[in-house]
Each structure stands twice: as C-alpha cells, then as structure tokens.
C-alpha cells in the first residue's frame, strides 16, 4: 500500500489525532443527530410498519449508522484539507517527502476510521431503544469500511477542489447529502414507484447502505455480491482519479 517511511503512518496518525482532539464536534455531535432521527422517525412511522419483515425502527438503524459513516468520512478528509488550505498549513505536508499514494491512503484511511467510530457510536446509542445485532458482522464491517473509503476519497477531491468553505458546503449539501438521504436510509426502495427505483440503482450510495443492511439483517433489496461489486468498482474508480489528481499536484502545487 505504501512503502516504509513514505509518510503514510505519520500523516494517518496526525489525521486521527486531529479529529480526536475535537471529538465532541466530530463524533458526539453526529451521533446525537442520528439519535434524533431515530426517535422522531420511529415515533411518527412505527405503527406496526415492517420492511423486509423487520420492524421499521430496527430497519432504520443500519441506514442511520451507514449514513453517519458516509457523511463523517466525507467530512473528515474534506474539512481537514480545506482548513489546511485556507490557513496555509497545507505546506507542512507538501514540503516533506510524502508520496502522493501515502497522502491519499492516509487521508482515506483516517476518513474511513472516523466514519466507523461515529457509526459505532450511533449503533451504541440506539441499543437502549432497539436492539439490532448484525447477522453477518463481517459483511457489515466490509461495507462500512468500503463505503467510508469511497466518501473519504470524494472528500479528498472536494477538499482540494474547494477554495472556500462555502464551496465545500455546497458540495456537501447539494451532492453528498441528497445522495445519502435518497439511497434508502429511511425506506426500502421497493416502496418507491418503478421510475425512482430505477434511478436509485444509479446511486452508488444505495448499494453501500443496502449491502450494510444485508450485514445487519441478512436481507436486502439487491444481492450483497452485486452491491459489493458496485462498491469495489466505485472505490477503484475514485482511487484512480484521486491518485492521478494528487500525482499531478492538482490545485496543491502550482
């Protein structure tokens, strides 16, 4: 993945330390948001509603966990980069002999890990209300990791592309948020009209959440292997794109 002394370990640790220092904002806050979603939606929609044979509140949990994983993975890499760019401290990682691959993997791994930590937090706080014990924990973990890595890579691109905080906010609000919200977090896509079901199949985030839900309940809208294939292909494409941008020094080195 990265050669010895390439700077990967140092940059990865620094990125972990960065979000851990402000864990109240980077972990506790999104966990609370997810808990509020759970309480409100389950209060409004429960009423004997079952999806895939699972009570609605339980159905909601994997969606909320995965949404937290994805949004926080994106937030981690993108906010770290935009902050470093705006304050100029990006220079500290541009001057040392850190390879573009080490740079990529450090940001993506830290982003995925922050996603996992927040996701775990969401799952833990939902336990008093509804107990969801993953039926296939390894599947769940794999989808969470790959999904987090995908959004971490998207965050790297967005963080390097954006020159101001509001550009990044636009990216987050008009792309990441709709893609995650409209991907089956709160519903099964089988409940959608055929047209929107078809549209959902073009949203890679749908496969992330559906695959993760499979890990939790052993049932899903599409076959888990299909979801895994879409996810692996998405990550490969994102990784190649991001690596080539970093290698060129796009927007980082003039």
């Amino acid at each position: 993945m990265s050669g010895h002394g390439s700077g990967f370990a140092a940059l990865f640790q620094k990125e972990l330390l960065r979000f851990w220092r402000v864990a109240f904002q980077t972990v506790a806050a999104p966990v609370l948001t997810a808990l509020l979603y759970l309480l409100i939606f389950s209060h409004v929609l429960e009423a004997d509603r079952r999806i895939h044979g699972v009570p609605y509140t339980a159905f909601l949990v994997p969606g909320l966990v995965m949404m937290a994983v994805l949004q926080n993975a994106f937030a981690n890499s993108s906010s770290s980069l935009i902050q470093a760019k705006v304050t100029g401290s990006i220079i500290f990682v541009l001057l040392p002999p850190i390879s573009h691959a080490a740079f990529f993997w450090a940001f993506v791994a830290a982003a995925a890990l922050r996603g996992l930590v927040v996701g775990l937090g969401v799952w833990l706080v939902t336990l008093p209300f509804v107990q969801v014990w993953p039926a296939q924990p390894l599947w769940a973990l794999l989808f969470a990791l790959l999904g987090g890595a995908c959004l971490g890579a998207v965050g790297v691109i967005a963080g390097i592309w954006a020159e101001k905080f509001d550009q990044l906010a636009a990216f987050q609000n008009f792309l990441v948020l709709p893609l995650t919200m409209l991907s089956g977090v709160f519903y099964s896509i089988h409940s959608l009209p055929p047209f929107w079901q078809a549209v959902s199949h073009y949203n890679p985030v749908f496969y992330m959440i559906d695959g993760f839900r499979h890990g939790c309940f052993g049932v899903s809208d599409v076959a888990p292997l299909q979801s895994l294939a879409v996810l692996a292909a998405s990550f490969a494409a994102l990784a190649l794109l991001t690596l080539s941008l970093l290698k060129r020094g796009w927007k980082l080195r003039t």
């Binding site: 700077g7 370990a9 330390l17 401290s89 990682v93």
Partner: peptide, 17 residues
C-alpha cells in the same frame, strides 16, 4: 500553523513526516 497541536506535537509530527 496548525491550530490543533502544541509546539512539541507540531515538531514531532513534522519529524514523523
């Protein structure tokens, strides 16, 4: 400067790079 760290942490991180 990186506002998340102390002087020593800053220098340790830079060394690690």
């Amino acid at each position: 400067f990186d506002p998340f760290f102390s002087v020593r942490e800053t220098l340790r991180i830079q060394s690690a790079y």
